[in-house]
Write a protein that binds this DNA or RNA. Sequence first.
DNA 1: GTGCGGGGCGCG
DNA 2: AAAGCGCGCCCCGCAC
Length: 639
Amino acid sequence: MGGPESRVNGTINVRTVILDFETYYDKEYSLRKMTPVEYILDPRFENILCAVKEGWPSNQPTYYVDGADFGDWVKDAKLDQCVVISYNALFDMCILAWRYGVVPKLMVDMLGVARAMLGYRMRSLALKEVARHLQLQAKGDTVHNVIGMNREAIKAAGLWQAYANYSMGDADICAGAYDLLVRSGKFPMSELFVLDMVLRCAIQPRFRLDQNLLCQHLGEVRAKKEMLLAQAMLIGADAGKSDLMSNDKFAALLRGHGCEPPTKVSPRTGLTTYAFAKTDKAFIELEEHPNPAVQILVAARAGHKSTLEESRCERLLKISQLTWPGNEQGLMPIPLGYGRAHTHRLGGEWKLNLQNLPRGGNLRRALIAPPGHTVLTIDSAQIEARITAWLCGQDDLVQAFADGEDVYSSFASEIFGYPVGKKTHPKERFMGKTSILGLGFQVGGEKFANTIEVQSVLQLGTEIPMPLEEAIRIVQLYRRKYSKISGTWSQLQTLGIPVLAGNGGSYSLGPCVFEKGAVSLPSGLKLYYDDLHQETGERGMQWVFSYGREFQKLYGGKLLENIVQALARIAVMDAAVRIQRRIALAMQVHDELVYIVPNHLVETVRQIVMEEMCRRPAWAPELPLAAEVGVGLSYGDAK
DNA sequence: GTGCGGGGCGCG
DNA sequence: AAAGCGCGCCCCGCAC
């Protein structure tokens, strides 16, 4: 009996239980139309039945519990001492926690596991598809249409046993997947703790929402949009919002005012399209068009294209108004998706991405700590740049990081030929920062010039002109100064990628071992490059690989970026797992961990998180890490 | 009505 | 030789 369940927290005899809830739904009240949190806390919620398989130590046949009896069953089941497994745990475990007040000792989401291990090659991760892929026999009956039928209606229609069989079949598939992917040891044990920790951010929420602030903010955002729209309607936007949102209508409107709309070639399709984005230089220039009507239209379009502030505010308000037993105070679950990204970064869930809230905005300020508590953030400083330098053997840069040097300023000094200070030369330092963060991944002169010109306006509020020749000079300066980094791109291109394509050779980079179709990471997970082959592109032969539904290009710089991002994710989440023994994670934004801390423990927690975030990983003992802590009453204030 | 791809925008 | 990357959500337009 060597499954991971027997080693959880060093104890033995931890039972495993696989669960699958079947719940009432109809045309309107459905997960197709609502998020799980809204669905589970709705008055129409009804637990019809729950299929149960006790996987270890007993291996009894799967059974089911009538929803009416589930409360009694759960009282005896001692799930708080079990490993509980389900497919889409963010649904089943929220039901357990919010409807029945039980949180398992360890939660395993087989959907998350499947995403991390199979997502790269499967079009759909529906349970049935995973079953087929793993060659697990579905034993249950075929799907029955029980839409709009509650427990009694299903029984009355004579469908009860068939429905239970169907549900038990799903639980069996989930159990089979757990055996094949987890108990087999293929999915690393350490990642089980990451998975559980991520689930708890939603299932055991710690943040609260400031409803007053959200209401006020929503009003302001709407008023601002209405004003912009009213101005635009005075000068021809008769159809209202759609004249601003639709490219064709907006283009016609511009032409009506004697302005020929700028165009560009789409990088995705290669076709000509309108250049109407705020990162298109030609569009930005229209802000100062001689015709004031054009200026008004451009401002109105830009003001309407970002719908994030309004829609996110609405969604947060909606969730903040839900309550459940044990939560009468508007706690905010943080839904994070395990294994969402190719590089194993987390992503969002529930139509809600809390990893891209605008910086310095009211949405971040609306995420608050409960009374007597503080929001504490810890940010791993320049972690990707540090890992890049270390992985490529760029020892002078590693040493500069280790010495606490401001490397952005240092590189800016090289660009300009005079000493650059963090405070005294903000423009120069911005260029140094943009170089260090982008040029390590093979950004070219043209893209670099555009990034500088556009981002200087957006980030500094003043444009830094960047002629192509100057951009090329800086790119070359970087590639010569950090020749170990640019050399690594070449190595990856000529040696690493062919190994991934299956030429039979071997290659490794730091702790990463290359094999056919994948790079093995020190976490035990893999970065997949499926069906990697060469194709003739606009730049001659290029490597492409298949990921989910699409093909992507692969080249040295991009592969380096993927690996660096994957390693950064491992370092940050391993730190979070160590910290979890002392304090539970509330939220994560890639290189930043967020905690809700009782006020009197702030200094204690500050020391713990600093120590763990700066601890060098076992797979990178020479990697110098650094971190910054922020505290505040809200997420927005903790900077 | 629904699904999907493209463009756009926010974050790291 | 050269090639920014990783997400999720919103809206539009089009196909079915």
